[in-house]
């Protein structure tokens, strides 16, 4: 379903990034990295416009030729980015939302681990497994 899933820290460095076609990992790094511009812009716009602060889903960040990039930001300004294949038209906004929700729940579990230092790269197996499941699903 997703081709790349990334978790980005508040300070905009990656905590976790994984993509399915591993041979072209760097491309996704670039994609996610540049999408941060949009994420930042959206977050600052939210602050300005005083729209519903509880809406964490940022929606489509930008479409590229092959991929669509979606964003999500937690209240602690940790960002999730999901890249999906543009050709996959079956994906609705709601499904993307539920993916983000799952991701957020799993991330919360990671943060609850007393042995995890906030700010360190995520190495949790459970998180990894959940991400893999999201990538394989309906692929």
């Amino acid at each position: 379903m997703a081709v790349c899933i990334a978790v980005i820290a508040k300070e905009n460095y990656p905590l976790y990034i994984r993509s399915v076609p591993t041979e072209n990992e760097l491309k996704f790094h670039y994609t996610v990295h540049t999408s941060l511009d949009v994420v930042e812009e959206k977050i600052s716009a939210v602050g300005k416009a005083l729209v519903d602060q509880r809406e964490l889903y940022l929606g489509l960040l930008y479409p590229t030729e092959d991929y669509k990039v979606y964003g999500y930001v937690t209240n602690s300004k940790v960002k999730f980015v999901i890249v999906v294949d543009s050709s996959n038209t079956s994906l609705r906004d709601n499904e993307i939302r539920s993916m983000f929700r799952k991701l957020h729940n799993s991330f919360t579990d990671v943060m609850c681990n007393p042995f995890y230092n906030p700010g360190d790269p995520i190495q949790s197996k459970a998180f990894d497994g959940m991400v893999s499941a999201m990538m394989v699903q309906a692929c």
Binding site: A9, N12, Y13, P14, L26, H29
Partner: peptide, 22 residues
């Protein structure tokens, strides 16, 4: 743009945090 400075001093504080691959 890649938050990369060429001064190693900026990197000596703790673990490196950035887009290492890029």
């Amino acid at each position: 743009g890649y938050t990369l400075s060429l001064d190693p001093k900026d990197f000596c504080k703790g673990t490196h945090r950035g887009w290492a691959a890029v």
